[in-house]
Deep mutational scan, measured.
Amino acid sequence: MQIFVKGLTGKTTTLEVEPSDTIENVKAKIQDKTGLPPDQQRLIFAGKQLEDGRTLSDYNIQKESTLHIVWR
């Protein structure tokens, strides 16, 4: 499925993911596209910070959802 990651600059990155992907895995995909290391990424969805060990489905993140990224 496709999801979007929007940064503070307003730039949006598209990712191809599975609902079973962990947040850690998603951060690795973001690094592949942007070069930003996972330890500098904070992902937010529906006002919650996403924890590395959880999956996208744990947070009810579905296709075409938009996550927000904040740099540490």
Rank of each mutant, 00 (worst) to 15 (best):
K63Y: 06
N25H: 11
T13A: 08
H68A: 06
E51D: 08
T14E: 07
V70W: 11
T13Y: 15
Q40V: 09
E51R: 07
N60W: 04
V17Q: 01
E16L: 13
T34I: 13
V17W: 02
L8P: 14
A28F: 13
N60C: 05
W71R: 12
G7C: 11
L56T: 02
L43S: 00
T66Q: 05
Q40G: 10
I30S: 01
D32F: 11
Y59D: 01
T66F: 07
L67T: 01
V70H: 10
G10L: 09
S20D: 13
E16G: 05
S57L: 10
Q31L: 08
K6R: 13
Q62K: 11
K29G: 03
K27N: 02
W71T: 11
K11P: 11
E18W: 13
Q41Y: 15
D39R: 12
E51C: 07
P38Q: 11
Q2S: 09
R42L: 15
L43K: 00
G35I: 02
P19A: 08
M1Q: 03
Q31P: 02
K29H: 04
V70S: 09
T13C: 10
G35E: 03
T14M: 12
D58G: 03
S65N: 10
V5E: 01
S65D: 13
T22Y: 07
R72H: 14
H68R: 09
D52V: 05
K27A: 02
Q41E: 02
T9K: 12
E24Q: 11
D21L: 05
E16K: 08
S57A: 14
K6Q: 10
N25A: 14
I69V: 12
K48W: 07
I44Q: 06
T13I: 15
L43N: 00
N25Y: 11
G47W: 05
L15S: 00
K6Y: 08
N25R: 15
A28P: 01
T55H: 05
F45H: 06
K27G: 01
D52Q: 05
K11R: 11
K11A: 10
D21Y: 07
A28D: 06
S65V: 05
G7H: 12
F4Q: 04
Q62V: 13
T34P: 02
E51T: 06
T12D: 06
T66L: 10
I23G: 01
E64M: 11
A46P: 01
R72K: 13
K33A: 14
D32T: 13
G35R: 05
L56Y: 00
F45Q: 02
D32P: 03
G10W: 07
T34N: 04
E24G: 11
D32N: 13
P19M: 08
Q31T: 10
I23D: 00
K33D: 05
E64V: 03
E24H: 12
G47T: 04
R72G: 12
K63Q: 12
V5N: 01
H68K: 08
I61H: 00
K33S: 09
I3G: 01
Q41G: 05
I30D: 00
Y59F: 03
G10T: 07
S20A: 09
P38C: 06
G7N: 09
W71A: 12
T12L: 14
T66A: 04
K29R: 08
K33E: 08
E18Y: 15
R72F: 14
W71M: 14
K63F: 07
K29Q: 09
T34F: 14
T22I: 05
T12A: 07
L50C: 03
A46H: 14
